[in-house]
Amino acid sequence: MLMFRKLIIVLVTILISGFNANAGSDGELIIKKNQPAEIKDCFETVNRATFAFNQALDGAIFKPISSAYRVLPSPVKSGVSNSLENLSNLVTIPNNVLQGEFKKAGINSGRFVINTTVGILGFINVAEYLGFPEYEKEDYGQSLATMGVSPGCYLVLPVLGPSTVRDTTASVANFIGGDAWYNVTVNNDTQYFSDFDYYASRITSGVDFRAKNFDAIENLEQNSIDFYASVKSLYLQDRQQKILNTNKVIETQNDSDWEEIETQ
């Protein structure tokens, strides 16, 4: 209960400090606030140093592990991936509620129950076979964004990678009651789970992401003239898409720049 109170206080504080006076939260305003070009890189020197540290860490640990992980049989990899996605429902569902998406909260709750039970701890995505709509992951940063909170400056976190001030601040909610998986593993002393389960799931999640994007990351690194700037751009574009829950590029791109280019 104390944790829940803390969570509410933090969320309210972030909301008050982050809201602009007009607090408009329609689609256009959200697009504008989250345009990658609009997000300042206030801590660029520190960010670049952290980025270099993360790259070294990746080369020494994540890349070799991901490389080995990739040779595992496909059913094992997709099973692990499904289990991790299933766990993420525990953060997605409260955020569906915070964003007023009650129907999605219901669907995701059903998805979680079915996949955890019939799908053997999420290993098999039974809900997908049953025709559930495509899963969209949500987090506390996305909820704040949909409420009109600006992203603030771009940040690169050690180990965890790219983020923004808003998203980093919002992620505190996970550790003060907003993530049921953290609550039953680290926060509370239960007989069934331990701290190890939580940290193992987080590390596996990182390895799974790195393995899925192995070739793309290598390719990008080799063919970029400023790898830091490329990663920043891709991350911020991805966040913008996730906040709007859209894959439609025309909803997020400003076409006026293209319209100026005449070559025919």
């Binding site: 070009a37 400023d226 751009s233 991805d238």
Partner: peptide
């Protein structure tokens, strides 16, 4: 020019390569 359509961007999973390149150049 409909007789000569040309590719101007590839958008992979919603992420625009031209936009990424533009921000890379801007950073330099």
């Amino acid at each position: 020019n409909p007789d000569n359509p040309l590719i101007r961007d590839l958008i992979i999973e919603g992420l625009s390569l031209a936009r990424t390149q533009k921000e890379e150049f801007s950073s330099i």
